[in-house]
Design a protein around this nucleic acid. Structure first.
Lengths: 139, 139
DNA sequence: GTTATTGCAAAATATTTGCATTATA
DNA sequence: TATAATGCAAATATTTTGCAATAAC
């Protein structure tokens, strides 16, 4: 929890209790939860927490690049720890989002130039069926 | 307009007047409009058209791969003509979405395998400032 | 003429905003 | 204690759904 506090301090973000638990949950859960997923998990331990604060906090943390937003489903936004210096895989069967590493020619030189356009970010969204679901389907 | 009609017929989709004008608009407009953008443009010429029909039609055309959905903004869904066999660039200044061609190692072998996960689709989302906006900024 | 499509209204879902209360440094 | 963050309620935005009227072949 102190590590999380330091991260917020270093980014110049006031480490309130709510921000600490939200950031800590993101680090611990090991997946890419939605606002509602985060809220539903935290409200058990912190009954006074509100969806508004979860929204506020994630917008702030995203702006400061402590977390990244994943819009691969097209419905709710999912959030992950750290900058989006990797890509994302959505399992269309179980809905899980996995981090994946790919060397995309343009991703490796961001920020870069493409036909006169200045590229600042690259997000690779991969859709398919994860290995767990493939195994379940075989049985 | 007859070309559009043939496309729908070939896909086994009944070519109603609404579907024809929606598909035709997508082909003609040369950009990636939202449902609302399509609706607002068409309702001038076709006052009886409804948002529901635009939603219905785009969901159908997407399922049949005649159009592709672009979720790069994280808010509304944008739509483009044809399969998503290319990637997309969002200008964060003017909001325009451009098609771009990139040879991503994984994209070139879709469907493919990545660490046991079966990849069916790849969507590359690039964010930055388009050449037009860069030029405007210089002046 | 039968079946599928359209379009209205309402519902469902996701996110933002206004503002009074509360907690932080 | 002054300022910023929280959290409730309401508003906004996007998309889906139920169903009666309509159009397609």
């Amino acid at each position: 929890m102190n590590i999380v506090k330091n991260k917020l301090n270093q980014a110049g973000i006031k480490p309130t209790y709510q921000r600490l638990v939200i950031m800590d949950y993101l680090e611990q859960c090991g997946s890419h939860p939605t606002v509602d997923g985060i809220y539903e998990n935290l409200v058990i331990k912190v009954p006074t927490i509100s969806r508004t604060t979860v929204y506020n906090t994630l917008n702030l943390l995203t702006a400061e690049s402590l977390v990244h937003a994943v819009t691969i489903t097209g419905t709710e936004v999912h959030y992950g720890i750290g900058r989006a210096d990797h890509h994302h895989f959505l399992c269309v069967q179980c809905g899980r989002i996995l981090d994946i590493e790919v060397n995309c020619p343009l991703a490796t030189q961001v920020p870069g130039d493409y036909l006169g356009h200045q590229i600042l970010e690259v997000h690779g969204y991969f859709r398919g069926i994860c290995s767990d679901c493939l195994n379940k389907n075989k049985r």
